[in-house]
Amino acid sequence: MIDQTRSPCAGCRTAALRRLTYAQAAAELHVEESWLRRHIRRLPHTKLGRVVYFTDDDLRRIDSLFHHEPATPAPAASTGQLVPLPSRRRRANAG
């Protein structure tokens, strides 16, 4: 007798595999679709024939490829005041 309550593959993932188009993947990553198309050779993706799609794992890998940490830590005691930048205008008598 077959047990109907168990899944046929006990070790398989139960979540369905999402296959996202360029437009859907771009929306998930908050980038332009054209950016994905330009960089497709460097990005993880799946291609079946001429159809390109992205899985959730591909999106996580793309995110980790372009993740950057700040090079310097933020100042510990910030006063919250803005400091003006020096003027970019040329001085009339410097020349």
Rank of each mutant, 00 (worst) to 15 (best):
A74I: 04
Q4N: 10
R90G: 09
P84S: 05
R38Q: 06
T14V: 09
I2T: 10
R88V: 12
A74C: 03
V83T: 12
A76S: 14
A10K: 12
E28I: 04
A71R: 11
L59T: 01
T46M: 00
R61Q: 14
T5F: 12
T79P: 06
D63N: 13
I2G: 08
T72C: 05
V51K: 07
V52S: 03
V51M: 05
T5A: 08
T72P: 00
R13N: 03
D58P: 02
E33K: 15
G11R: 10
M1E: 11
E69Q: 13
H30L: 15
Q81S: 10
A16G: 00
E28P: 03
Y22Q: 10
A15Y: 00
S34W: 06
L29D: 08
P84V: 07
S87R: 11
R50K: 14
T14G: 13
C9H: 14
V52K: 10
L82M: 08
A76V: 15
P44R: 05
V52T: 11
R37M: 11
A71F: 11
L20P: 00
A92F: 15
C9G: 08
F66I: 13
P75S: 04
R61G: 02
W35G: 08
D56H: 04
S78C: 11
P8Q: 04
A76K: 14
A74P: 01
F54M: 00
L36A: 02
L20I: 06
W35Q: 12
P8F: 03
P8E: 04
T79Y: 05
S78I: 09
A94H: 10
R37N: 12
R50M: 12
G11Y: 01
G80H: 07
P86G: 03
S64L: 15
A26G: 02
F54A: 00
S34E: 13
D56T: 02
K47A: 09
C12N: 04
R6P: 01
T5G: 05
G80C: 04
L48I: 02
P44T: 07
R41F: 12
A15M: 02
L65M: 15
A26N: 01
A76G: 10
V52L: 03
E33W: 13
C12E: 02
P73L: 08
T55Y: 10
R60G: 02
V51F: 09
L65K: 12
Y22R: 13
H39N: 07
H67I: 07
R91M: 05
R38N: 07
C9L: 15
R18S: 04
A25K: 01
G11L: 08
E32T: 11
E28Q: 14
A92N: 08
T72K: 11
G11N: 09
R13C: 05
T79A: 06
D3I: 07
Q81V: 15
R6Y: 05
R88K: 13
P70V: 14
T14D: 10
